[in-house]
């Protein structure tokens, strides 16, 4: 049985976790901007979030252990190269086989940071209204 708090918080905890993971990928892309033969990677946020939601529900009904969600998420994208971690299609590949476009990565990184902070804001709002309900003030 899913906990009421989980359904109350909605999609935001998963979105936050996924943003943090995507942030790591984009950071790796930027760090490897000058590495020969490095291929830029990213996740398809929408489908990854859908999978994460489905996986967490499944894990909840199956085991109910608090770690089930985390494992499901990292197994999907942590090992790299499977369904969720995809290689970016380069706009202008360089001669050394590197497909990192620093501008694209920077834009994505900025967007992802905003997304993370938005999820954080939503969660904060949820917690605040919960506190109001509990304290009745």
């Amino acid at each position: 049985m899913p906990m009421p708090l989980d359904s109350y918080l909605g999609v935001h905890p998963q979105a936050l976790k996924l943003s943090a993971q995507r942030n790591e990928l984009l950071a790796a892309n930027l760090a490897n901007a000058d590495t020969p033969n490095y291929k830029a990677r990213d996740v398809d946020f929408k489908s990854a979030l859908a999978t994460a939601n489905g996986a967490s529900k499944l894990a909840m009904t199956q085991t109910g252990t608090p770690h089930a969600q985390t494992i499901a998420l990292t197994q999907n994208s942590g090992t790299g190269g499977d369904a969720q971690t995809l290689y970016r299609v380069p706009l202008a590949p360089s001669l050394d086989g590197n497909t990192v476009d620093a501008q694209v990565e920077q834009a994505n990184f900025a967007q992802n940071a905003i997304r993370y902070q938005a999820s954080l804001q939503f969660l904060n709002g949820k917690f605040r209204s919960l506190m109001t309900a509990i304290t009745g003030q």
Partner: peptide, 19 residues
């Protein structure tokens, strides 16, 4: 210098590669 990316050990909780 020649740069090389290092993927963390498979199964470790890391998606990104260091350089």
């Amino acid at each position: 210098p020649v740069f090389k990316s290092v993927q963390a050990a498979l199964g470790a909780q890391s998606a990104g590669a260091k350089v």
